[in-house]
Simulated scan of single mutants.
Amino acid sequence: MNSLTQLRHTLHQHPEIAGEERQTAQRILDFFKPLKPDETIEELGGTGLAFIFKGKKPGKRLLFRCELDALPIQEKGNPSYQSTVSGKAHLCGHDGHMAIICGLGEKLSQNRPESGEVVLLFQPTEETGEGAKRVLEDPRFEEIRPDFAFALHNLPGFPLHQIITRKGTFAAGSTGMTIHFSGKTSHAAHPEDGRNPSEAISKLILTLPEIRKNISGFCLATVIHIQIGSLAFGTSAGQGSVSLTLRAFDQGNLELLIQKVEEKAQELAAADKLELEIEFLESFAVSKNDPHAANLAELAFEDLGLDVIENAEPFRWSEDFGLFSQSCPSYLFGLGAGENCPQLHEPTYDFPDELIETGVRVFERIIKKETLQGN
């Protein structure tokens, strides 16, 4: 077993969820110490790390990003390196993504880029959609702001090692939205003496399809949770909330969808004299691929003779890397994890070790392609 596979298994055994990734970051830091990067930035955006390898000549700065966090899900698979932490596991493959970037670090340690700089970013808190924002807002990010940023995600259901690409939008943007309505409780025999939010919540849910239809392009508004009052049969509810996940393939459409839902909630609250409070959780920007960055990656795929397919539509799930794509030229692609591999976030999922070498080779070739084009 090589060092990267061993590292991946160790990371798998010791998962840490979003915001808790200190031991994971320390393991990555320990791995990179003998590689002697030119600069190291610790605690970037929280527990994040950035390792900088400088080229021999001036040139472009390329950033390659992976994720530190695991999921709060109990693992039900049975690898020899099973999670040792109850209720937490690497069921999205971030352990494998980290191993790939560590492998790229090994290559850069042996051969610095011909020109420019390469930044290897280990981003915290991806699963909750908070990490990219924290990294980008950290003042030290200006030291590593890239000309191009790259990331991959393993994708079960596609042949092992196959590259899945898409021009323009690769994955949807999304946000969690909870709308709280506050009225006044009353006796259930006299609901007219109170202000029950159930009718406003019902009307809002029934209006969602119409709101979606009036926005051109794909968008979704999925009801995920409703809460009204309490289980007290003599009481008419005075409090209620509805939680939605809103998503779209275009950032402007996502923002318009949010606006329209907000406006409808305000209208319904005013009509029934209810107080309104709206909160947002787990917000992910649309992942949009830059044409120049795409060209570098596509040349690398071609050089390596990899099987490449272009997805007909963007993926409906969201990735925190989308925020990078909104702030600098970026490229996100998929790496097939096998047609029979359990889906991401399933309790039996496990990242295929065979993908580590493929991911390293792709990223290494992208660096070489940019250096050649830059010359």
Rank of each mutant, 00 (worst) to 15 (best):
152 L>H: 07
59 G>I: 02
347 P>H: 08
9 H>L: 03
91 L>V: 10
4 L>C: 07
24 T>S: 05
366 I>F: 08
356 I>T: 10
308 V>I: 06
30 D>E: 15
275 E>H: 12
342 P>D: 04
278 I>D: 05
67 E>D: 15
234 G>P: 03
107 K>A: 14
315 F>M: 11
226 I>S: 04
145 R>S: 10
296 L>I: 00
147 D>Q: 11
190 H>S: 07
319 E>L: 11
272 D>A: 15
86 S>L: 13
301 F>Y: 13
70 A>N: 08
191 P>C: 08
119 V>D: 03
212 R>Q: 14
104 L>Y: 07
166 R>I: 00
287 S>Y: 08
125 T>V: 07
243 S>R: 13
322 G>Q: 01
358 T>K: 13
128 T>R: 13
182 S>M: 14
12 H>S: 12
197 P>A: 11
344 L>K: 13
202 S>C: 09
143 E>T: 09
332 L>T: 05
18 A>H: 06
197 P>E: 01
190 H>C: 02
13 Q>H: 08
123 Q>V: 08
53 F>R: 06
204 L>Y: 02
306 L>C: 10
204 L>W: 02
135 V>D: 01
143 E>R: 15
4 L>V: 10
258 I>W: 13
306 L>M: 12
369 K>S: 03
328 C>G: 04
288 K>F: 13
161 H>V: 04
89 A>N: 09
3 S>W: 00
47 T>F: 11
214 N>I: 07
269 A>V: 00
375 N>D: 01
52 I>V: 15
299 L>R: 15
162 Q>E: 09
180 H>I: 09
96 G>D: 04
148 F>L: 05
336 G>R: 12
289 N>H: 10
2 N>W: 04
179 I>R: 05
40 T>K: 14
151 A>G: 05
262 E>P: 00
348 T>L: 04
322 G>D: 03
106 E>W: 03
140 R>C: 09
118 V>Y: 06
31 F>P: 01
192 E>N: 12
165 T>M: 08
162 Q>F: 12
3 S>F: 01
343 Q>F: 12
324 F>Y: 15
201 I>W: 10
242 V>S: 06
353 D>W: 11
232 A>F: 14
332 L>G: 01
22 R>Y: 15
238 G>I: 03
199 E>K: 15
131 G>R: 02
279 E>L: 09
293 A>M: 09
205 I>L: 08
80 S>A: 14
91 L>F: 05
92 C>M: 10
267 E>P: 00
96 G>Y: 07
346 E>V: 07
331 Y>A: 00
286 V>E: 02
139 P>G: 01
357 E>W: 07
182 S>H: 14
155 L>P: 00
164 I>L: 03
98 M>G: 00
311 N>M: 15
9 H>F: 13
146 P>A: 13
304 L>R: 12
62 L>V: 06
35 L>Q: 09
211 I>V: 08
274 L>A: 13
260 K>M: 10
138 D>N: 14
132 A>N: 02
46 G>L: 11
201 I>M: 12
248 A>P: 02
340 N>D: 15
272 D>Q: 15
145 R>E: 06
252 G>C: 03
104 L>K: 06
293 A>Q: 05
33 K>T: 04
337 A>I: 06
355 L>M: 10
120 L>K: 09
263 E>I: 09
202 S>Y: 01
119 V>F: 09
85 V>C: 04
233 F>E: 06
234 G>M: 01
150 F>K: 02
264 K>F: 02
196 N>A: 12
243 S>M: 14
198 S>G: 07
331 Y>N: 02
288 K>I: 13
114 E>K: 14
96 G>Q: 05
